[in-house]
Amino acid sequence: MSSAFDVPKAVDKRVSTMAVDDLAKRGMRTVKVLDKAAIMSLIDEAVEMVVADRMKELEVGDRDRLREEAKTQFKKLVQERNSRQKEKQDAYEERIEHLRAQAVSLEEKLLQAEREKEEAFQHSQQQVVTESVAVPAGGLDADQIKDVVRAAVAEAKSDSAPASENQMDDLKASIDALASKVTHSHGSKVNQSVEAPSEEALIELFSKEVGEDVENNLDQVEVKNAKAGGVSANLAKLKNLQKETE
């Protein structure tokens, strides 16, 4: 109540100020002092008494209606407050999501930069080694892979006696090494393709007849077929529209 009606301000407005000497001239020797807190307390007390009396006078139905109205008002206020808080929370979450996405993007860029740096380093190392000693370095080309695999197969075929545990381990190790080189070399290609490709590069990439090299049964199995309503009417209408705009 006191928050709706500013009691101290109202009191200030209505009081008249008088000098103590003037009061003495009027024969007043003592004055009664009432501070603002006491006034507030008196008003609250009075209002509570009046409300209590009125409540007694109210019908049960009116009292319930009053209670319901108060409850509804309270709920409305709580909902408004919650909704404001939810909006704030959503905004925060959106911001967090955005920042996360930014972080992921930056992380990817960083990784990409690191990979490119590593590739450039390996490329330069490879060039140096090839120019100076002419010995195959880190990344094997297709012919080198063929040679290594042929040699390994020949070794396996020629070895008529059962291989010792050590020999098998050696063979496994060499296969692992080869695999890691193949894997690495393939990975590099993938990473490079993340950069915006030129049209020529794309045509070259997809012009390779992959289907002929890779075992598949795509041409032996029918894909799902369907028929749909014709588009002749759409086509005619579109052409008419194009003519009109010309």
Binding site: V223, K224, N225, A226, K227, A228, G229, G230, V231
Partner: peptide, 13 residues
């Protein structure tokens, strides 16, 4: 694609 009969034929994967 459209065949000469004006039917639309589709393949879905």
């Amino acid at each position: 694609f459209q065949d000469n009969g004006g039917n639309v034929n589709l393949k879905i994967q």
